[in-house]
């Protein structure tokens, strides 16, 4: 038996090695990577997290624009906004040899090396939404002007609570360039207005349940909070839940960032009073344009910033409001 199984293992190993040899043979003999013809480019989009309206809307923009250019797009994303999950996905995407990768890095430093590996394989990189410590590995970095978005969130609270009071930030986790900038834009604007007291920012780790418990605890400590800025989708969902738990609907104004279907619903229901909508579709469109430019050897814009829209209950059904809302599917 022992001898027999050893033989089987040896045979299998031989098959595997043979397969490996064939694989590398066809590799070196096959078409060279990146040699696709004009207008026939293979693009890959690596989302920050799968199943999120923001990234779906971006994907829609990317697909739309890619179709115009005659390029194909594959989309991949991890179940959590987490560099330990995104790294293996990115590595597999790189191995599939696309011409360009549009990626939303999940960590400014953890994703640096993996993305640099993609560049080393001759793949053009476009950073969409989030960025890196050293964005020079990418041909272009396209994101919302998040600082301005954070400032807009405070302006929304100013309108909703003209008498001033205490305001709190509910962030995702430190180290994500976009949410850091939103929190900073909000904090700076809040500190500049003497009528408001800024209570700082607490982090929800992108977990609605944690955001809810943060908010209900904060309302225990400071029952007179008038405004909460929740700097992303899940933070806003959780913050609304936390306010409901504390029974403070009507007193606390929640300004959410992003405008996914659930947040639009929350706005309609009145649990959230304003939304700062980014333009993910536009980010996607511009991302594809920059990628194609790079592939054609044309010059790129290193930094592109897209704008944001404030949506309130009053504007939600307007054409502008509808256009700003995110999509759940293309």
């Amino acid at each position: 038996m022992k001898r027999k199984s050893t033989a089987i293992v040896a045979a299998l190993a031989a098959v595997a090695l043979g397969a490996a040899a064939c694989g590398s043979d066809s590799d070196s003999g096959g078409t060279t990577a990146g040699g696709a013809k004009d207008g026939n480019y293979k693009l890959a989009f690596v989302q920050g997290v799968a199943g999120d309206a923001f990234y779906i809307t971006m994907e829609c923009g990317i697909k739309e624009e890619a179709a115009k250019e005659g390029a194909t797009v594959t989309t991949q994303g991890a179940q959590k906004f987490d560099p330990t999950l995104q790294t293996p996905i990115l590595q597999s995407v790189i191995a599939s040899k696309p011409d360009a990768i549009l990626i939303a890095p999940t960590d400014v430093s953890a994703m640096q090396q993996p993305i640099a590996q993609a560049k080393a394989q001759g793949i053009k990189i476009v950073l969409v939404d989030t960025t890196l410590n050293d964005p020079s590995v990418a041909v272009s970095a396209i994101s919302s002007d998040n600082t301005a978005g954070g400032k807009a969130a405070f302006e929304a609270i100013q309108k909703l609570a003209p008498n001033g009071g205490k305001v709190l930030g509910v962030g995702v986790q430190p180290g994500i360039s976009t949410t850091d900038a939103r929190d900073k834009g909000f904090a700076d604007a809040a500190k500049a207005d003497s009528k408001f007291t800024y209570l700082g920012v607490q982090y929800s780790q992108n977990d609605p349940a944690k955001a809810a418990s943060i908010v209900s605890a904060a309302l225990q400590k400071d029952p007179d909070i008038v405004g909460i800025f929740a700097s992303n989708l899940f933070s806003a969902q959780g913050s609304a839940t936390g306010i409901r738990q504390a029974g403070k609907q009507g007193q606390v104004n929640v300004v959410g960032f992003d405008a996914g279907p659930e947040q639009i619903k929350a706005l309609q229901d009145g649990t959230v009073q304003a939304l700062i909508a980014q333009q993910p579709g536009d980010i996607g469109v511009q991302g594809v344009q920059q990628a194609i430019k790079a592939l054609k050897g044309e010059s790129n814009e290193a930094n592109i910033q897209t704008g944001s829209t404030i949506i309130t209950k009053d504007t939600i059904d307007s054409a502008e409001g509808k256009a700003a809302a995110y999509k759940a599917s293309c």
């Binding site: 694989g23 590398s24 066809s26 590799d27 096959g30 078409t31 590595q91 191995a95 599939s96 394989q121």
Partner: peptide, 9 residues
């Protein structure tokens, strides 16, 4: 065959 069993992958 072109991409799976490559050195990089």
């Amino acid at each position: 065959p072109d991409t799976f069993l490559t050195g990089f992958n």
